[in-house]
């Protein structure tokens, strides 16, 4: 931590951020981006900042409830443990935080989910939505963070 840098940043800021919107298109097992977004979302929630995530393209697979823990290869089990949890478990935990604290909403793009056959396989807390939800997320956010995909 660099508290001096933090205070320097905050002193010159005119904003008071209460709501952050993430736009995410990266799916399971592609890149680090989803994990990073969730790690950062957790930090923001801890600070009382509401988080909204718009998941589209491959990111709609992150909340596929049918993904299961899979066994690691025997040679790696000593390092990684017996099982590898899907990222949907992490998302589910952050959504549950909102029951008694600052909330995170997760909206899955309906068209992207239908194209990938996961519309009816979303975890309980994920909401199937449209571009209208994205617009409202963006319009209502103090800060919008769009995570690019690698092409």
């Amino acid at each position: 931590m660099h508290n001096d840098e933090i205070s320097e940043s905050q002193e010159s800021s005119q904003k008071h951020v209460r709501k952050v919107a993430f736009i995410l298109a990266t799916g399971s097992y592609q890149r680090e981006a989803p994990t990073t977004v969730l790690r950062l979302a957790e930090k923001l929630l801890e600070r009382g900042i509401e988080v909204n995530v718009w998941a589209f393209e491959e990111a709609v697979t992150l909340t596929n409830r049918d993904q299961i823990e899979h066994n690691e290869p025997p040679s790696l089990r000593e390092v990684l443990g017996d099982r590898h949890a899907p990222i949907g478990r992490f998302i589910d935990q952050l959504l549950r935080v909102g029951l008694h604290g600052t909330k995170m909403d997760w909206v899955t793009c309906i068209l992207c989910a239908q194209e990938r056959g996961v519309e009816r396989h979303q975890i309980g807390g994920a909401i199937i939505g449209t571009l209208g939800d994205l617009w409202k997320f963006v319009k209502g956010a103090d800060q919008v963070i769009a995570i690019p995909v690698y092409r």
Binding site: E5, Q10, S13, V17, L40, K43, I49, I145
Partner: peptide, 16 residues
């Protein structure tokens, strides 16, 4: 300088 996601979250909270 080495930093952390805590720093990033505080910076975002400060607003850009």
């Amino acid at each position: 300088r080495e930093s952390s996601l805590d720093f990033l979250a505080d910076a975002i909270a400060g607003g850009f």
